[in-house]
Write a protein that binds this DNA or RNA. Structure first.
Length: 516
RNA sequence: GCGGGCGUAGCUCAGUGGUAGAGCGGCAGCCUUCCAAGCUGCAUGUCGAGGGUUCAAAUCCCUUCGCCCGCUCCA
């Protein structure tokens, strides 16, 4: 189970996408009109898979008992907030102004850069050329300096006359003498332009500037703005968490890689509120707990890693925090690299403070810790996961080519995630077998997603279940009527065992409950 | 946004200007005692879309949309 899979034996993304289409896991949105870039629909099996993922998450973080690092049960309550919120929310959160990054295009090289990442070097003289580079790219910086020296026929820049400036601080005339990072002539860089990553809409039938609103780019802010409501109404005490599953929208520049980066997606977020000094302890605990959780639902192979962020890639709200880490999965399209499934970040008190300030109540909104007789803004540990990315990881991980079987492939879902838990089949369509099988099917169906099929050959029916990832098939054969037993066919091993027909329900319950 | 590749049945694909096809899959029936067996039959297409050239376009031209890969981007 924990054997790392060599990249060469891993499925191609093409084959995963093809199976998703063929078996009804995922379709392109509005496909009959040619689709729409960055939007995806889930078909019958995909919907079941994603629901199982979300239900497992909700059940495991909100409903079931979880013991925290302090030895006490972790207290988490749920909310379900709106997608459209008061636009002031996004000013407070920093999404308006920060999220909408100004970009600069290069007319010559056709490249696009974030304006606030561009730096120029050169003389201040009004006719001197300025050479631009991306501040994070040392090679580009070296190249810009080299080009500068070559252009001015000098050996090295003179600190007294050559200055570095941010591109965003340049005047229009200064920009005209800039040479882009990948350009040869000056004047090819455009002025910084806003590319809004938030979807805009209007509230009310009449459009005006005042009526503008945004589709939320993350579910977190609904939790933060409801923090005080939850504290006032639900008897929670720090440390506690608020969880939410919901849609979020980002107008991505380049949606790519199937459902991995889509414009409409679903998040599973917890904001866990703690005393500031306990941040390191809770951060580490959540990071490890969340990693363990993803492993428990079927991502236990070497394709899942926990990666601590370097200090220089931390978000603005996390610079001084206890840390940020990603749980990452090696997708076929990222291999040998990894793509993020969930981020765990110590957001300090950034969000609660920001909302307290922007709504005008300020310090009055500090949380009162009765035990300590103290007021403060709790710190936050945020485990924020992508439901669509998680579903995609489950699909990629489950995809197991097997030339030995008729389907050529089977989906090795963890039983808890499997869209169909079991199928019940008569071996052949006669001698009372269909009737007995249907009886078992109907009793199982009271509790589980199961399937019954009496058509075609048994091999064909098994093959179909392999591609749907159904872990167990119960088959009524010639001996079943007299012995009161059925066979169980195990998806992964193809092994069969015989169990009592009246025990099938409890047998299945056991298998689905086990987290192995 | 740039560059490259691709788009024909549910899937994989053939079809270079002249009646839209194959294999697999699907459905129905027969058959079938454990892994897509066989037989018979059936259904399935805006040839991604729009426009143009032509007597005639899946095929040539233009535009556009979508998918994949590489850049770029990913608060």
């Amino acid at each position: 189970m924990s054997e790392p899979v060599a990249p060469s034996t891993r499925p191609t993304m093409e084959s995963v996408v093809s199976l998703c289409r063929r078996r009804g896991f995922i379709f392109q949105s509005s496909e009959i009109y040619g689709g729409i870039n960055g939007f995806w629909d889930y078909g019958p099996l995909g919907t079941a898979l994603k629901r199982n993922l979300k239900q497992a998450w909700w059940s495991d973080v909100v409903e079931r008992e979880l013991i925290g690092p302090d030895g006490n049960a972790v207290d988490i309550v749920g909310v379900d907030c709106t997608i459209i919120m008061n636009p002031k929310t996004w000013i407070a959160s920093g999404h308006v102004g920060g999220f909408n990054d100004p970009m600069v295009d290069c007319r010559e090289s056709k490249a696009r850069y974030r304006a606030d990442h561009l730096v120029v070097i050169g003389r201040t003289a009004p006719d001197a050329r300025l050479f631009a580079f991306l501040e994070s790219d040392d090679d580009a910086k070296a190249k810009a300096i080299k080009t500068l020296c070559k252009y001015e026929r000098i050996d090295s820049p003179d600190p007294a006359s050559h200055t570095m400036r941010l591109f965003t601080t340049l005047s229009e005339t200064d920009r005209a003498r800039c040479v882009g990072p990948d350009a040869s002539a000056p004047g090819s860089l455009t002025e910084p332009r806003q590319f809004s990553l938030m979807f805009k809409t209007n509230v009310g039938a009449i459009e005006s500037d005042d009526s503008s609103a945004y589709l939320r780019p993350e579910t977190a802010q609904g939790i933060f703005t409801n923090f005080w409501n939850v504290v006032d109404t639900s008897r929670v005490k720090v440390p506690f968490g608020i969880a939410q599953i919901g849609k979020a929208f980002r107008n991505e520049v380049t949606p790519r890689n199937f459902t991995f980066r889509s414009r409409e997606f679903e998040q599973m977020e917890i904001e866990f509120f703690i005393r500031p000094e306990s941040a390191p302890e809770w951060y580490r605990w959540w990071r490890d707990e969340r990693f363990r959780w993803w492993q428990s639902i079927g991502l236990g192979s070497g394709n899942l890693i926990l990666r601590e962020h370097d200090r220089d890639e931390l978000a603005h709200y996390a610079k001084e925090g206890a840390g940020t880490s990603d749980i990452e999965y090696r997708f076929p399209f990222t291999a040998p690299g990894f793509g993020e499934l969930e981020g765990i970040a110590h957001r300090a008190d950034f969000d609660l403070k920001a909302h307290a300030t922007h709504c005008g109540k300020g310090e009055k909104l500090r949380y009162f810790d009765q035990e300590r007789n103290e007021r403060y803004f709790p710190h936050v540990i945020e485990p924020s996961a992508g439901a669509d990315r998680g579903t995609l990881a489950l699909l990629c991980e489950a995809y197991t080519p097997d030339p030995a079987r008729a389907s050529g492939v089977y989906m090795k879902f963890h039983p808890r995630m499997a869209p169909i838990k079991a199928a019940v089949y008569p071996l052949v369509n006669k001698e009372g077998m269909p009737e007995m099988a249907e009886g078992i099917y109907r009793s199982l169906r009271k509790k589980h997603a199961v399937e019954f099929d009496e058509k075609q050959s048994i091999g064909k029916r098994y093959a179909r279940m392999d591609e749907a990832g159904t872990p167990f098939c119960f088959t009524v054969d010639g001996d079943s009527l007299s012995s009161g037993t059925v066979t169980v066919r195990h998806r992964d091993t193809l092994a069969q065992e015989r169990i009592a027909a009246d025990q099938v329900g409890s047998w299945l319950d056991d298998k689905l409950d086990s987290t192995a």
